[in-house]
């Protein structure tokens, strides 16, 4: 009896970890797409997540838009925000030093946070689960339908992601830019356009992450920094630039975090993922899935 209790506890923590980890994975994918296109870490990534969640809340609870429509509309709005960010702050920079671009993304993140606070205030917003909140029971542990939605949407996004980057012209040209921008330009790829696409896609994925997690964590304007940071942790652990690595790392990070919260201390839950980020950064900056040779070529 005692054993089965322990097992169901463990399973419960793992479910919780996968749920959070999927979000980190999505945020990490967003980081990677922009990193591959520009060599810059977009510090505003976390704000895309917040915007996605908050816009979704407003659409469903105030405007009573059906969930499916609101889902796509919110994603679209945030994607437009991403494109605006790229067109007005990244694209016009004539001599793009990495340090300057990083500070620009920090500025945008402060700005977006300020805008979110002016529009939605400091309250945290509740949103209904997509399909009820009666949990299923599996081996004594419970799993929310929303968790299944999160995992399912992650799988769908990864599927489309692979399809997009391997089988469409835009995706292929973006990959070419990521590998060598000058060479890509030589064969006629518009590299600046590729950067714009990368911001659109990255903002879109961030928004989706925000939309699907909001029913569980209740979104407020200030959540972007920590979500972004943990997503970044996943990106580093998975090997910066490697999106499939990021997905795996994100889920691992989420599970470790949930186990740490369950067995060690819930107060230090947020610190656990960050500690892993630091350890990986110090011991293996190329990430657990990235090759160290490839990472040496990347100048970040």
């Amino acid at each position: 009896m005692n054993h089965s209790n322990q097992f169901s506890d463990l399973l419960q923590f793992v479910f919780m970890g996968i749920q959070r980890g999927s979000i980190y994975a999505l945020v990490a994918m967003g980081f990677n797409i922009i990193y591959n296109a520009t060599g810059v870490i977009n510090f505003a990534q976390g704000e895309f997540v917040v915007l996605g969640g908050l816009i979704m809340v407003s659409m469903t609870t105030m405007l009573h838009v059906p969930i499916v429509v609101a889902f796509f509309l919110s994603t679209l709005v945030v994607m437009i925000a991403g494109v605006i960010m790229e067109r007005f702050t990244i694209n016009p920079v004539k001599e793009p030093g990495i340090l300057r671009l990083i500070i620009i993304t920090i500025a945008v993140s402060i700005l977006l946070k300020g805008i979110a606070m002016c529009i939605w205030g400091k309250d945290s917003y509740h949103m209904d689960h997509f399909s009820g909140d009666t949990p299923f029971e599996i081996f004594g542990a419970t799993i929310l339908p929303q968790t299944l939605w999160i995992i399912g949407i992650l799988v769908i996004i990864v599927f489309f992601f692979i399809l997009f980057f391997n089988h469409t012209m835009i995706g292929k040209s973006m990959r070419a830019c990521a590998i060598n921008r000058d060479a890509a330009r030589l064969v006629g790829i518009n590299d600046r356009l590729a950067v714009m696409y990368s911001f659109a896609i990255s903002a879109g994925i961030g928004a989706i992450a925000g939309i699907i997690i909001t029913p569980i964590i209740q979104m407020d304007y200030g959540r972007g920094a920590l979500l972004g940071l943990k997503g970044f942790g996943a990106a580093v652990v998975g090997g910066l630039g490697n999106s499939i690595g990021a997905v795996v790392a994100g889920i691992i990070l989420g599970v470790i975090e949930a186990l740490g919260a369950g067995y060690i201390s819930s107060h230090y839950m947020d610190a656990i993922a960050l500690l892993i980020l630091l350890i990986v950064l110090f011991l293996r900056p190329s990430g657990i899935m990235g090759s160290s040779e490839a990472s040496r070529l990347k100048d970040f």
Binding site: A107, I110, L111, K113, G114
Partner: peptide
């Protein structure tokens, strides 16, 4: 509350 907004705009 506007501080954040203003700092962000100035920095940008």
């Amino acid at each position: 509350d506007y501080d954040t907004l203003i700092y962000g705009s100035i920095l940008l």
